[in-house]
Design a protein around this nucleic acid. Structure first.
Lengths: 251, 251
DNA sequence: AGGTCGCTAGTTGTCAGACGACTAACGTCT
DNA sequence: AGACGTTAGTCGTCTGACAACTAGCGACCT
């Protein structure tokens, strides 16, 4: 999408962003001028200002409150986590002393969806247990976690009063199944309306999705999980090694 | 942000999204009804429809073309890449037979910004070479890559006619400096106006940012790089291992 | 003195109508 | 066949008005 000149709304968004970053447009409590005032100040219509502000809201730069005003979005606390070693979020949070809460767990035993069947190497006649929950810190949703597990590996009874939100921790404690590794896909994604609702966001807000297959020692896929993270709370990194052998690379 | 009822624009966006997913709102060539028609169909003002469509455009669900119409966004080809082994994008693309082009390289020798100095363990008096370029496939920008390198490791002369876009490849070929690994942070991010312009996107569009420090064998940081990927072209994954020792974890 | 309720002013969200800027398609002319 | 101009339709922007919401203030009650 190459445009000869940016639409006015885009230009206004750029200028407002500059004004925010320089601090010139922001009062002490993070409040921006009203739409009417921005309209006059930038010499465009209020509708165009609204389109510009919508863009900035989607960029998580601002937050608009009906009847109140438009605010610069607040900065967020960060948890840093390496991805090389598989560790549950609950264990990670505990290790760094962060208090997290688990929202209501939605457990359902059903047939797998086609994508789930494929990822779990199941047939449509098999049954899976779906375990979905929201993780919160300080009442604030930070992640939405869904595990899809063949019922041969996990039943409702396995999840008892001691379930802390992590199937991985449950299995590691139990030493059954014996786990090997996970393959985790990393995707930036816009929240759809269901997930947005669960994480108290708007559809379209940016999430980091980790989509993982967990393999047991015998090579079977024992878990297919989808983890959606609100940016700013968990900060993931990976250590990438230089391969030892590069012979044959150019053949 | 919990609302008693969603704003009308949000509700309209949800309904339009449902109509797109069910196929009911989309013609053969991916065209949606006009804003005027959607306004009538959903019984809201055209301004509200515009706000709804803006949300969907930000979610990369649709593309709006001035004077033409509103289209469902096209699906994208995908390159899958593991992150465990450090490999340049250029080598990766070559390995899988994908033709990529490098846009104009912007090279600048300057003092490091504070964040760069910190990441590269430099002082403000040091000098770095900044190498910025866009990677394209089929004329389409897919990534914006910036390397910040201390001049002791890289000079303009090092980048000659043989520079293919990858400093990593250059160093691996030269075997100097001897490289060890990189630490790469993974962040979903909204494009700011500069990067959006380079990648022919709108500010606020979703990108995956990989922010990496590259370490030599002697422990020095030899490169600080920022790589911004347009979603849908490169698809990253990581293999996460179960640690061998878990003794002491609960102490 | 403290708490509650109602009102006001100000702000965002939505509506309606109009015009500007853009584009694809079609017809006419060379 | 190619170039140019026109038309109809669409998105982008403007204007003015009203609906929905909220913080703050003052009045009133306990």
């Amino acid at each position: 999408m190459v445009r000869k000149s940016a639409p006015l709304a885009q230009q206004a968004a750029n200028e407002i962003l500059s004004g925010i970053r320089s601090g010139k447009l922001v009062s002490r409590d993070g409040l921006l001028p009203s739409e009417a005032e921005l309209s006059q100040r930038f010499n465009v219509s209020r509708a165009t200002i609204r389109e510009a502000l919508a863009k900035l809201e989607h960029a998580a730069v601002i937050v608009r409150k009906h009847g109140v005003g438009t605010f610069v979005a607040p900065p967020q606390p960060v948890i840093d986590a390496g991805l090389e070693e598989l560790e549950s979020l609950e264990t990670l949070a505990q290790r760094i002393g962060l208090e997290t809460q688990m929202g209501k767990v939605a457990i359902e035993e059903r047939a797998p969806l086609p994508a789930e069947a494929e990822r779990l190497q199941l047939t449509p006649q098999d049954q899976v247990l779906s375990v979905a929950r929201v993780m919160l810190t300080g009442k604030r949703p930070v992640a939405y976690l869904v595990d899809i597990v063949p019922v041969s590996y996990l039943s409702r009874q396995d999840l008892g009063d001691t379930f802390n939100g992590s199937i991985l921790d449950l299995w590691l404690h139990k030493k059954q199944p014996v786990l090997s590794h996970s393959r985790t896909d990393i995707v930036p994604e816009a929240a759809d309306e269901v997930i947005a609702h669960k994480l108290r966001l708007d559809p379209g807000d940016i999430l980091l999705k980790l989509e993982a297959q967990l393999f047991a020692r015998d090579g079977k896929v024992v878990d297919y999980s989808l983890s959606y993270f609100v940016p700013g709370h968990f900060h993931f990194h990976v250590v990438r090694r230089i391969p030892m052998r590069r012979i044959g690379k150019n053949s």
